[in-house]
Design a protein around this nucleic acid. Sequence first.
RNA 1: GUUCCCGUAGUUCAAUGGAUAGAACAGAGCUCUUCUAAGGCUUUAAUGUAGGUUCGAUUCCUACCGGGAACACCA
Length: 567
Amino acid sequence: MSGASGTDVFPQYLSRLQAAFFFAYFQYDGEVKNTLYTLVIEALQALGVENQKFTIEHPTNLAFGDYSTNAGIISKKPQELADYLDAHKPTEIEKIEVKNGFINFYLSKEFFKKSITEIIEQGNQFGRNESVNGEKVIVEHTDPNPFKPFHIGHLMPNVVGSTLARIYEWNGAEVKQACYQGDVGIHVAKAIWGLLHGETENAYPVGNKAFEESEESKAEIKEINKKIYDRSDEKINELYDQGRKASLDYFDSIYTKLGTKFDYFFFESETAGVGKEIVESHPEIFEKSEGAIVFHAENHDKSLHTRVFINSEGLPTYETKELGLAKVKAEKYPYTKSIVVTGNEIVDYFKVLLQAMKLIYPDLREKTVHISHGMLRLPTGKMSSRTGDVITFEELLEQVKEKIAEKGDLAQEEVAIGAIKYMILRSNIGSDIVFDIEKSVSTEGDSGVYLQYSYARTNSLLEKASAKGGALDTNSQGPALAREMHPLEKLLYRFPEVVERAQTEHAPNLITTFLTELAGSFSNLYASEQIISDSPESPYLIAVTKAFNTVMKNGLTILGIPAPEKM
RNA sequence: GUUCCCGUAGUUCAAUGGAUAGAACAGAGCUCUUCUAAGGCUUUAAUGUAGGUUCGAUUCCUACCGGGAACACCA
């Protein structure tokens, strides 16, 4: 997504002063990295290389150092460049080498030791930064429909949306979470039809089936739909009010389990009217066609298509309600950014909607970002909420808990929630997730359990250490010893960078991947070294354990995965 | 048919245009008299096809093959 002009591209002709200004925007990308940028620019100038673009990044493999630049390849003078850099290297850099044309920088043991100390000092604040300080963000997600079950398809937007909200928070934004619920519309009419025919639990699926299979029922349901809008029928009003409340209470209980806290609840019943007014007051944008009011988006952008905003019954469709919602949101909370999380099957609808918004209120459109997630699919195909053939969230949770009970008896619900969330957060937001309870919800290996287990282990270690009076001490001999640094010590300081990138790329999976790598690294250290011992190095290893414990806890907090103290 | 998204080990997922394509599960083999074996160690195994751009392509472009989604009154 990001163009060629990011942090990785730096015109060599800028002065140092300009460079300092330029870097002000990237101050959380790592101080050392910025120092290296400036240094490489200087080196290129010294070698008389004109106007070259280069990158500085963490190599994929620690064997290639902690930072690496391709400036040598591009300038075709790797050795000369490396020599200059070596002569002017900052104190944090211990060694510079040329390999395959790349110039690799190795951080000093002193740097890592200091980073461990800083992590411990910052504690539950470590990882927070101010890269989007001042932004007021509203994240809308989950959006279940009252009168319908909360099924596993709702988990995707919930987990993705609430995690994005926390990521923005950790990057310094003020964040509100919003849930938008369709308490009016044909689906509600279907459920009411079911209720009128004596159904309770299955009111919606029964009504839906009737709608599909019988013209007569279809007409009745459409009639009910109108009556819901104008509240003209007392019996329907009563069923509606009771059903709506029961449904919302049920959602609340699920949000509690998932750890989601919404600041605002919006309802279609309050956005429908607003949206309809907007549409009707813009005849220059919306046209009448076949009894409905439509928007010919393809007139503005060839890749878009026409959509109905007000149907021939005079009722607003989703598009119109969403148009109203944008305004309602802005009135309630003057946001600088509005993120809407939905399934990717509606990306094309949303593009049309954004085009309409652009014409009506361009300022709000500029602030709106649509993020779409993939589908949660069963091995047999797509799940449907229309047929009633769905797995509800609670059914899923029970099944996962059963599976976990085979392994241990502590923290079962926390582990189950963690396993489910991890499964969603480990892959790209946009990609589909094939959901097989046996295979997907793993309790070993690459899983939420793995992170939780490594965390619980460190708690137990730290407890034992403190009981033994073995205080952690980053100034003990650790890095001073001749041994190689363990990879864990070389990774921990990168956490804030990962948190920042997760925000700029809207990619929670970067955090998941990072934490899993850390946990693997810790497990390896744990297996190969005695952390608590009489060795002079022990206090330092305890400090590393504490730093890992801190980062893991903060990372799990961002992901919304419970961090059980024991398991 | 048009538009959009996606094709990576047997499977489920990673990989800001970079170096030796990482994990996990499954398979083969080790590992608890020692801090939690839900762990660790070793090992087999992958970029759909054909071109192009580039010093360098899983990544960008084109075509094809294969999968998914959307395409007027449901969201």
